[in-house]
Amino acid sequence: MSSILAFLGENIQMIYIVILSIFVGVEVISKVPSVLHTPLMSGANAIHGVVIVGSIIVMLNTEPENILLLSLGFVAVVLGTLNVVGGFVVTDRMLEMFKKKEKK
C-alpha cells in the first residue's frame, strides 16, 4: 500500500498532466464535423509520433560500444520518424485539397 502511495506521490505532477490532457483531448475534438474525421485521425496519428523523442533519448543514453542496443535504437528512430513525417505530410496533402475549393 505505502509503495503505491509513494509511487503516486512521486509522480503526482505527471498524473495531473494525464488527467487534464484527457479532458483537453476530448474537448478539443468534440465538435469535429464528420468531413474531417479522416484528416483528424491522420493528424492525431502524426502527433503520437512524439514517441520518437523517447527513441532519441534511448540512443543518447546508450554507450557507443553497445552495437545491439544502438542498432535497435536506430530502427526505433527510423520508425518514429516515419510515423511523424509520413503522418504530417499525408495529412497536409489531404487538407491541401480542402483549401483549393475555398477559393472558388
Binding site: 505527471m14 498532466i17 490532457s21 468534440s30 503520437h48 514517441v51 533519448i57
Partner: peptide, 30 residues
C-alpha cells in the same frame, strides 16, 4: 497514443505524455 504516453511517464517527459494522452483521448472519442 497511450503507448507514447507510457514512454513519457518512463522518462518524466512531458511532451511525450501530453502528446500521447491527447491522441489517446481524442482518438478514443473519434
Amino acid at each position: 497514443g497511450l503507448a507514447a504516453a507510457f514512454g513519457g511517464f518512463l522518462y518524466n517527459n512531458q511532451v511525450m505524455l501530453t502528446g500521447g494522452i491527447l491522441v489517446g483521448s481524442a482518438g478514443t472519442l473519434l
